[in-house]
Amino acid sequence: MANFEKNPNIRSTEHLELFVEGGILHCIYKEVDMVDLEYAQACVSERLAFIDGKAYPSLFDITRIKQSTKEARDFMANEGNDLVSASAILIGSPMLKMTANFYIMVNKPKNPTRMFTDRKSALEWLSQFSA
């Protein structure tokens, strides 16, 4: 895992840990009980500030999120996907699996999106979208 204290290419924000490796943006969500619309908007703002106008295939590690609201999921599927060429959602619990499946099937993100339970498979899938 990345060393967030010593690498200037890695940013730790209020909500996320962000870095680019192998042409893939890694967005690791910090532990939170509920992602609501305001929280989702803050995460997207932090991500967009970090990538500075460049689109990336992105790994979204949501293993430390407990729940999200419908409004947050709707936002993430649309405006929240700006400059994301493909999304791999890394989950770690049955509840997150249900939420991620719902997000993919009902919210229908505007980019290719898949759910994974292991980081290696997610990165392998995303590699086809990196330059």
Score class of each variant (00 low, 15 high):
Met105Arg: 13
Ala100Leu: 01
Asn107Ile: 07
Asp82Leu: 15
Leu90Lys: 06
Phe102His: 15
Ile89Cys: 02
Met98Ser: 15
Pro112Gln: 00
Met105Tyr: 10
Met95Trp: 14
Thr113Gly: 06
Met76Pro: 04
Asn101Arg: 14
Met95Leu: 15
Met98Asp: 12
Met105Ile: 11
Met76Phe: 11
Asn111Leu: 12
Asn107Trp: 05
Ala86Ser: 11
Asn78Met: 13
Ser93Val: 04
Ala77His: 07
Ser93His: 07
Asn101Leu: 14
Lys97Glu: 15
Val106Phe: 05
Val84Met: 06
Arg114Phe: 10
Phe75Leu: 10
Asn101Lys: 13
Leu90Phe: 02
Pro94Arg: 08
Pro94Tyr: 09
Leu83Tyr: 09
Lys108Met: 08
Thr113Ser: 08
Asn107Phe: 07
Asn111His: 14
Ser93Arg: 08
Ile104Ser: 05
Ile91Tyr: 08
Ile104Val: 06
Asp82Val: 14
Asn101His: 13
Gly92Pro: 00
Glu79Ala: 14
Pro94Ala: 02
Val84Gly: 02
Ala100Glu: 05
Lys110Pro: 00
Val106Leu: 10
Ala77Cys: 06
Pro112Asn: 03
Ala100Gln: 02
Lys110Arg: 12
Gly92Gln: 04
Pro94Gln: 10
Ser85Cys: 04
Thr99Cys: 12
Ile104Cys: 01
Val84His: 00
Tyr103Leu: 02
Met76Ala: 09
Tyr103Cys: 00
Lys97Trp: 12
Gly92Tyr: 03
Asn78Gln: 15
Ala77Trp: 02
Pro94Glu: 10
Leu83Pro: 05
Ala77Asp: 05
Gly80Ile: 06
Leu83Glu: 08
Ile91Gln: 08
Ile89Leu: 09
Asp82Cys: 13
Gly92Thr: 04
Phe75Gln: 04
Asn107Ala: 11
Ile91Lys: 07
Pro112Phe: 05
Phe102Lys: 13
Pro109Cys: 01
Pro109Phe: 03
